[in-house]
Amino acid sequence: MVTNSEAAHTSRRADTGHGPGRNRPPTVSLCIPAYQAERHLQTTLDSVLAQTFTALEIVIVDNNSSDGTREILEKLHDNRIRIIRNKTTVPMVDNFNLAIRESRGRYVKLICADDTIEPDCIATQVAVLEADDNVALVSVRTDFIDDEGALLRPARGLRGIVGRNSGRTVVRRIVRSGSNPIGPPVAGMFRRVDFDRCGGFRGELLFPMELDLWSRLVRKGDFFGVPRTLASFRIGSESTTALTSARSQLAQQLEFTSRLVHDPEWQVPLSDRILGRINAYDMQMRRSLLFALSALRASRRRRALGSEKGRERPG
């Protein structure tokens, strides 16, 4: 686990007239862990800064990046933003946890540095949590996009769990689906107090890391699925998931599901277990195809760009 002594803290609070007062905690913390994020970070920040809900802070943790991430962050001037720079590069799970544990908001959303959210995403999710103290996790549907932001698959997530659902219903759906029906980190919002109580992110199984957190959060209360597409998840050709072998992804998913099945709190029926194992193989094949498609598109763009540059050279 990362301690504060391992990170260098830098805050920028230009007087823009936005956000919470200097001494008043924000309602929401948007936490952005960033590492080698130069390519997409500005797009992510633009979507975050365009939110209609303004009682928020933006906590960005630069995990000792060596690309242009630092230069992008140095150009930010907004009193809602706090920038933290790690002195050394730490494991991804530690950087995720550090970003959230530096937050001050009652509600928290973690946004990876290549994902985006729609302008009313935060307002919509906050409204759900404010309306019902017994909801521990709220999620939205997510578009899957490629490296350049082109749509790969629209409106993913929440199949069978739209609206309010108990933790047991959600866990049964996780097992039955063989995948992650709640969505990636950018889809969710939760209470900071519940995050602390359930122990934060765990890195033992890296591939289903957020799904592991989701399943522990719904022990603390109900789940609410908002049937609107308010976030975009980038299927990056060089992301951590893309660089993890399909065999490893499947093995981790099956191991995680097995742990849920053997947890007596959830009482998962045999029929869900059998169907879930079949679906896990099918979903892994679909996931692999999506990443292959994203990589193919990226390769074609690079070749096209190379051809254009070649034509521009003088003969």
Rank of each mutant, 00 (worst) to 15 (best):
V218H: 00
F224S: 07
S215V: 01
K220R: 14
F201C: 00
G199T: 09
P208A: 08
G203K: 04
R216S: 06
E210H: 10
S215D: 04
G221T: 03
F223P: 02
C198D: 11
W214P: 03
R197S: 12
D222S: 11
P208H: 06
P227F: 00
R219H: 11
F207T: 03
S215I: 00
G221V: 03
R197H: 12
M209W: 09
T229M: 07
L206V: 14
L206W: 13
P208F: 05
F223E: 07
E204I: 11
S215H: 01
C198R: 10
F224N: 04
G200V: 02
R197W: 08
F223G: 01
G199K: 08
G203N: 06
L213H: 05
R197F: 08
L211E: 11
G221I: 04
L205C: 05
S232G: 13
T229P: 06
G225Q: 13
L205G: 01
V226M: 10
F201T: 02
L217F: 04
R202N: 14
E204K: 13
R219V: 12
P208S: 06
D222W: 11
W214D: 14
F201E: 02
L213M: 11
L206E: 14
D212S: 14
D222T: 08
F201K: 00
L217H: 04
D212C: 09
W214T: 03
F207A: 05
T229I: 08
F224K: 02
R202W: 12
L211S: 11
R228M: 10
L205V: 02
L206I: 14
F207I: 11
